[in-house]
Nucleic acid binder design. Structure first.
Lengths: 248, 248
DNA sequence: GGCGATCATATTGGATCTAATATCCGATCT
DNA sequence: AGATCGGATATTAGATCCAATATGATCGCC
C-alpha cells in the first residue's frame, strides 16, 4: 500500500504547488503554446516568487509529461499531437478498466449514492454555459469510481493521468472549445448510467464493458471533432502568463 | 509528439540525477526500507552534496511513486504490498499491450534483428549468476518493443513504469532474490520467442496476445513465489546509505 | 493528577548568491 | 571565403542562508 495517499487538499500552501498549478493551467488551456521555453527567472518574476519554487514546479510538470527538460537548457512545453491525445485516453481507459473491476466488488452504498448524485447533477449541467462545471463533475464521477477500487497504485496513476490531461486540455482545440459536447450529451449521460447500473449490481464484467464503451465513445467523438481542425493547438494566444519565446 | 525523448544517456552529469538514481537503487534493492523518513540534510551529507539536489531528487522519486511527500514533514519511502506489485504489473501489461499493437505494424527489420539478438543472449544468461544481466536484457527486450510503437506518450509512460519498478524490485523479496527464476526460465524464453514471432509476422492481435500471456505468467509466477513469504520486504538491512530512522 | 497552551527544536520550504554549462558572435587562421 | 577557435552572454544547476511549519516537551492551570 502506498501510504499517505489521503489528499486532503490543504493544497497550495506550498508555493511550488501554486506555481505548478498555474503553469499547468496555462499549458492545458493553451495560453502557453507548445515548444515555448519556460524561463525560470521570468516566470518567477511574473509570479512574484523566487526561482526555486519555479524549478520545483518544472520537475513536477516534467514528470507529468507536460514539459520536457533539457539539461542546462531549460524546460519547454511538450507538443501534443492528436495521436498523443488518443494515447492518453487509451492509456487511461486501459487502467480505468482495471480499476473499475476492483471497484465493482469494493464499492460501498455510500459511494454509489455520490455517484448517483453526480450523475443527476450532470444532467442538469448540460448547457454550454455550464461546460466547465460539467467537466469537473465528470472528473469527480470517474474519480469516485477509481478510488473505490481500493488499489492505491492504480489510484495514484490515474490521478496523475487526470491531472496532466484533464478534459480541460480540449480547450486548446478551437472547435471543441466552441461546440462543447455536440450531440454527445445524451449519449454521455446514458453511458454514465450504464456504468452506474453495473456498479450497483457489483458486476465487474459489465462495469468494465460499460466504461470501455464510454471511454471509447468519448475518444472517438473527440478525434472526430478534432480531425477537422488538424493543426492541433494552432492558435492559443499567449495571455497574462506569457513565457519567454525569444531565441535566447 | 512529445519532443526531446531522445534519451541519449549523457546521464548523471547532473547531481540531482545522480542522487535520484542512488536513492532509487537503494529503495528498489531494499536497502532503504518502507516507512523510513528520508532526511534531506542527512542524505546530502552522506552523498557529499548540498540539500538542493537531494530535494529535487525527492520530487522525482515522488512522481514515480517510490516515496510520498508530506508537506513540511518530508518524504518517506512508500510501502508496497504484494497487491501493489500486482497492480504495477497489471498496469504495465495493459499499456504494453497497447504499445505492442502499434509496434507490430511499425517495427523495422533492424529492430527485429536486435530483438533476436537479445533473445539469443538471454538464452545464454540463464544461470543464476547472470541474473542481473538477464534482467537487464529483459528490460532492453521490452524497451525495444514499446519504442517500436512510435507512440511517444506510451513510450514515456512505460519508461516511467519501468524505472520506478524494474525487475530489480524483486531483490527486496527474499526468496525471489535467492531463487532467481525457478522453473520459469524456459517458459520465459518460449514466451519471448512467441512475441518475437508475432512481431515478425506484423500481426498485432497475435503480438498483443503473446505479450499478455507473457506478463500474466510473469506476475502469476511472481505472486506465487512471494505469497509464501508474506511480509513483503521484511528484511532488507540498511546498508551504506542508511537513511534517518529516528523518531525525529 | 491530567489536560491544554506555550515554547524549543528539528526539518522542510523559499530566497539569494555563486558556479557550471550552453549558445551566440566575432576574430583569426588556413 | 569558410571554418574553427575563443570569449561574451544568458541561463540553468548547485550551495548557502533564512523563514515557515510541524512535532515534542515543558510548564501552568484547572
Amino acid at each position: 500500500m502506498i501510504a499517505g495517499m489521503s489528499d486532503t487538499l490543504p493544497a497550495a500552501r506550498q508555493l511550488r504547488r501554486l506555481v505548478a498549478d498555474r503553469l499547468r493551467r496555462g499549458i492545458l488551456e493553451g495560453r502557453l503554446t507548445p515548444g515555448t521555453w519556460l524561463r525560470q527567472e521570468q516566470i518567477a518574476r511574473e509570479m512574484g516568487v523566487s526561482q526555486m519554487p519555479v524549478r520545483e514546479a518544472f520537475r513536477e510538470l516534467a514528470a507529468e509529461g507536460l514539459v520536457v527538460h533539457e539539461p542546462y537548457r531549460g524546460v519547454r512545453i511538450s507538443s501534443l499531437t492528436l495521436a498523443d491525445v488518443r494515447d492518453v485516453y487509451a492509456a487511461r481507459a486501459a487502467i480505468e478498466a482495471l480499476a473499475i473491476r476492483a471497484a465493482a466488488t469494493e464499492i460501498t452504498a455510500d459511494e454509489l449514492g455520490t455517484l448517483r448524485q453526480l450523475a443527476a447533477k450532470m444532467k442538469r449541467r448540460l448547457a454550454p454555459k455550464h461546460l466547465a462545471e460539467y467537466r469537473d463533475l465528470n472528473r469527480q464521477f470517474h474519480t469516485v469510481i477509481f478510488k473505490a477500487s481500493r488499489r492505491p497504485y492504480l489510484i495514484r496513476l490515474l490521478e496523475q493521468l487526470w491531472t496532466a490531461f484533464p478534459a480541460m486540455l480540449l480547450d486548446s482545440f478551437r472547435k471543441t472549445a466552441a461546440t462543447p459536447l455536440p450531440d454527445r450529451d445524451t449519449d454521455d449521460i446514458a453511458e454514465h448510467e450504464a456504468i452506474l447500473e453495473a456498479l450497483s449490481r457489483h458486476d465487474p464484467d459489465a462495469a468494465e464493458a460499460a466504461i470501455r464503451v464510454h471511454l471509447e465513445e468519448t475518444v472517438r467523438h473527440l478525434t472526430a471533432t478534432l480531425d477537422e481542425e488538424t493543426p492541433a493547438r494552432a492558435l492559443a494566444e499567449p495571455l497574462a502568463l506569457a513565457a519567454g519565446e525569444r531565441s535566447r
